[in-house]
Design a protein around this nucleic acid. Structure first.
Length: 517
RNA sequence: GCCCCCUUAGCUCAUCGGUAGAGCAGCCGGCUUUUAACCGGUUGAGGGAGGUUCGAUUCCUCCAGGGGGCACCA
């Protein structure tokens, strides 16, 4: 109820204004300048007429005059309202609350203290805010509320707005880098009957008209390869994929994946492309704007980023090392030499591996547990075991391995690429091996996608393929410790589960209901 | 799914086995160059449900949400 008191108070003001014939939700107001423009002109000594609009972030009434700090996306500026200047129109001041959106027409000026201001001739209430904004000095601190009600976070924090705008800057950079290399941006289905292209449990949805279940995609890969079969030489998609997994600071059930495929290229070409994508994005994002948690001073070089307590140097070229070599260097074990003895190797190293794995999967386990976390600066880890890479081309010199790399930064996988497998017979055999694992109970292995195999049978040019975890890249470039800090609306648990569970399922669309209603 | 921690007023924070205190916001009043405006007055609260106790916000159990870790995660 106490929260309702504030709400009720503002509703009361709405009623009062309406009774006086003052519109509370205006639609007509065209500011002549953004607040940043107006502020710059006033600061430069201009005294011409101007009109601005924005949200009231601070309000300092003092009897016959009042000062309001108005904020729009461009910035913040003081409005100076004077009774002796506005006459009757000054009454509006009594109706204004923090959070209201107002339009102000007046004259640019500076106060005695030198503050650039708009001396108001008139002030128009454009939107009455019925809820009070977060605390004007400390802002919104509660992490949960910031995520759930992102609008409050954004409206009370310029840092937050800048932070998410940087995400867009990075996304633009990724597109620019690919576009400039002749890649065609495409869009492929999210609703799929088989969610393939990776190993993950998909989300399920129901298609009423066909009385059939469909899945949300877990990867983009198989459709982009179909497009290579169709004759496009370079395609990419930046889009949302969905994986039915738990939440963590590094995982959100829906996340943004960039996948790019290039005909007549290998994973070596993808390495060059990956490096360009990261370096361009880092340049676009610019130097890190602020000190981080560790209190390190900001650095002017956009290639140096503080992240996860480490300083990361993104200056190319990046190291490129074979996984087997990294293991041998750091652990002193030649896993290629002891291939058939891999379980014993794992045991010797203290790596816990579930039974039933082949040597390749065990080797990957060793790498992921003991080697990967220590990698800090960007490193291309080359040549994964074929066993764990069903869609990649095997190495000619050693078919136990495939031409595949992951780009690892700060101990985390940022990108994944391979020379794509385009032998439909080999692909069918490897899918069959995977299918056996699915039959054995691994529900992360998708069923065999016959349509994709048929496409390969038509003939896919040799190609390199690349996937980039865009959210993780944005985390790296913004220093965000949690993936939730780079998603405007991260996935959250519903707050009132029982209420939702009791809600009857609506099988009709809103428009159908409207027609009936 | 498991473990640890957190949840106090609209917001930001205190306190405590003895009935909760402040700042901002709100309300009333004052104030025509302020800017986290100021001055006086004032309303408002311990996530939910149980339990222990003379008495619980505090201790215990369960539930919900959040944070972190693990598991899961190409």
């Amino acid at each position: 109820m106490p929260g309702d008191d504030l709400f009720a108070e503002r509703l009361r003001k709405v009623e009062k204004l309406r009774a006086e014939g003052v519109p509370v939700y205006q639609i007509d107001f065209s500011p002549s300048a953004s607040i940043a423009e107006a502020r710059a002109r006033a600061g430069g000594g201009a005294e011409d007429a101007v009109s601005v609009a924005g949200r009231i972030m601070r309000l300092r009434p003092q009897g016959g005059a009042a000062f309001a700090d108005l904020e729009d996306e461009s910035g913040r500026m003081q409005i100076w309202l004077r009774a002796d200047h506005m006459g009757d129109a000054y009454r509006i001041v009594g109706s204004l609350d923090l959070g209201d959106i107002v339009g102000v027409a007046g004259t640019l000026t500076k106060t005695r203290r030198g503050e650039p201001s708009v001396l108001a001739d008139s002030a128009t209430l454009l939107v009455k805010a019925l809820h009070p904004p977060p605390e004007k000095f400390h802002g919104l601190q509660d992490q949960e509320t910031r995520s759930r009600k992102r609008y409050l976070d954004l409206l009370s924090s310029e840092d937050s707005r800048r932070h998410f705008a940087t995400r867009t800057t990075i996304l633009r950079s990724l597109r620019r880098t690919l576009d400039s290399r002749g890649f065609l941006e495409v869009e492929t289905p999210i609703l799929q009957t088989i969610a393939g292209g990776g190993a993950a449990v998909p989300f399920m949805a129901h298609w009423n008209a066909l009385h059939t279940d469909v899945y949300l995609r877990i990867a983009i890969e198989l459709h982009l390869k179909r497009l290579l079969v169709g004759g496009y030489a370079r395609v990419y998609e930046i889009g949302r994929v969905f994986r039915n997994e738990g939440l963590s600071p590094r995982h959100n059930p829906e996340f943004t994946l960039l996948e790019a495929y290039q005909a007549y290229a290998t994973y070596d070409d993808m390495r060059v492309l990956t490096e360009a994508l990261v370096v361009d994005a880092a340049s676009a994002a610019g130097p890190q704007p602020q000190t981080d948690d560790a209190g390190e001073p900001p650095c002017e070089n956009p290639m140096l980023r503080r992240f996860a307590g480490r300083t990361i140097d993104l200056t190319p070229p990046y190291a490129a090392r074979r996984m087997a070599d990294l293991i041998e260097e750091q652990l002193g074990v030649d896993v290629v030499d002891r291939w058939d003895d891999m379980y014993r190797v794992a045991r010797e190293l203290g790596v816990d591996v579930p039974a039933g794995h082949g040597p390749g999967a065990v080797m990957l386990e060793i790498y992921e547990q003991l080697v990967e976390p220590a990698i800090s600066d960007p490193t291309f880890v080359l040549d994964y075991p074929a066993e764990v890479s069903p869609l990649a081309r095997k190495r000619k010199d050693d078919p136990r391995f495939v031409e595949r790399f992951e780009l690892v930064v700060a101990g985390r996988e940022l990108a994944n690429a391979f020379s794509e497998l385009n032998d439909p017979i080999d692909q069918r055999r490897r899918f069959a091996e995977q299918a056996a694992m699915r039959a054995a109970g691994d529900d992360e292995i998708p069923p065999i996608d016959e349509d994709f195999l048929e496409a390969l049978e038509v003939g896919m040019p040799p190609a390199g393929g690349l996937g980039v975890g865009v959210d993780r890249l944005v985390q790296l470039l913004t220093g965000a410790g949690s993936i939730r800090d780079v998603l405007l609306f991260p996935t959250m648990r519903p707050q009132h589960r029982t209420a939702i569970a009791h809600e009857p399922l609506a099988h009709e669309s809103p428009s159908e209901r409207a027609e009936e209603g």
